[in-house]
């Protein structure tokens, strides 16, 4: 078991290396010459060459990649071209809203998606099943910003129940904080709920057709405990896998949701960075999100053994 955990952790290193290589190439290939920008209008070709040498821009690709990676591993993601602030500082400033939004969405999606899937499977073919599946297709097809605008219009502008835009930090009280995140997390969670409900239903149907479920029914176990104890527990592995894979969707969706609801998080940081072509910031955010994604899926892999003791490595 321990050796599996170590092997699995080591296996993420090459993946992260490839991600790092890609993210570095982004800056390497980015149009524009930083040396020429620093040198200014009056600079001669020799001046630019001197600055380029002092920045290390004349060194070969792999050498530059190595030194960049060394800095990244020491927590130095470079300096923003636009604000001149360290990228790590800018990320730290905007991580709280994004992190809160993603955690809340994750909780909401699991709390809504799993029961929907279980009910649909338990009543297979009924109108409940059909409407859950229909909702899942709609949830899948409606882009996150469309749901976002609809919700904000309905509950924010028309009914005036919840704030339309903006984010309240948790330091200003838990309730205002939660209120500011309800609409964004429902909008962001829709596609995720659809995904989780669908996979839960499918695995539950498979498990419910197994022999041991029939045995449990035959010996008179109640339907509720069959569903929750016998079936759901054994359906956990695929459901947890999808939750892990869905984090990728969640990250992409967060960028858009923050734009719709004017939340000053990492998504906004990314969109602003794109409009300003602030490559170090784009690099930093992509690297951070990819690391999160890889780590979440690592945890999911390790959780398999908890949910299914038959899995031994």
């Amino acid at each position: 078991m321990l050796s599996y955990v170590i092997r699995r952790i080591l296996a993420t290193i090459p993946v992260m290396l490839i991600v790092a290589l890609f993210v570095f190439s982004l800056l390497y290939l980015a149009p524009g010459d930083p040396a020429a920008v620093i040198a200014g209008d009056q600079a001669s070709v020799a001046d630019i060459a001197r600055i380029r040498a002092s920045l290390g821009l004349d060194r070969p690709f792999l050498v530059r990649f190595g030194s960049w990676l060394w800095h990244v591993l020491h927590g130095d993601l470079g300096t923003s071209i636009f604000t001149n602030l360290p990228v790590t500082h800018m990320i730290a400033q905007s991580i709280q809203p994004t992190f809160s939004l993603m955690v809340l969405t994750l909780i909401l999606s699991v709390v809504v998606g799993v029961p929907l899937g279980v009910i649909a499977a338990a009543r297979q073919g009924s109108w409940i099943d059909r409407s859950v599946m229909l909702m899942a297709v709609f949830g899948f097809s409606t882009p996150v910003f469309v749901i976002g605008y609809l919700l904000a219009y309905l509950f924010g502008l028309e009914l005036n129940w919840l704030p339309v835009q903006g984010f309240t930090p948790i330091t200003q009280g838990f309730w205002p904080f939660l209120r500011s995140l309800i609409l964004p997390s429902v909008a962001l969670g829709m596609i995720y709920i659809a995904l989780i409900a669908r996979i839960t239903r499918a695995t539950m149907l498979e498990v419910l057709s197994q022999d041991y479920v029939r045995t449990a029914r035959a010996k008179g176990v109640g339907e509720r405990s069959i569903l929750l104890l016998h079936a759901l527990k054994n359906a956990a592995v695929p459901v947890v896998t999808v939750i892990g894979l869905g984090v990728g969707l969640l990250i992409g969706g967060a960028v858009v949701t923050e734009t719709v609801f004017a939340i000053p998080g990492l998504g906004r940081l990314t969109t602003d960075a794109i409009l300003r072509r602030d490559y170090p910031v784009i690099q930093g955010v992509v690297l951070l999100f990819s690391l999160t994604y890889v780590l979440v899926n690592l945890i999911v892999d390790l959780l398999y053994t908890v949910f299914d003791p038959r899995i031994r490595y």
């Binding site: 090459p14 993946v15 992260m16 290396l17 490839i18 991600v19 290589l21 890609f22 990728g248 969707l249 990250i251 992409g252 969706g253 960028v255 858009v256 990314t270 955010v285 992509v286 999100f289 990819s290 994604y293 890889v294």
Partner: peptide
């Protein structure tokens, strides 16, 4: 695997 580790939209 490396490409898949970067969320698609990003």
């Amino acid at each position: 695997d490396g490409l898949m580790a970067i969320p698609g939209i990003l």
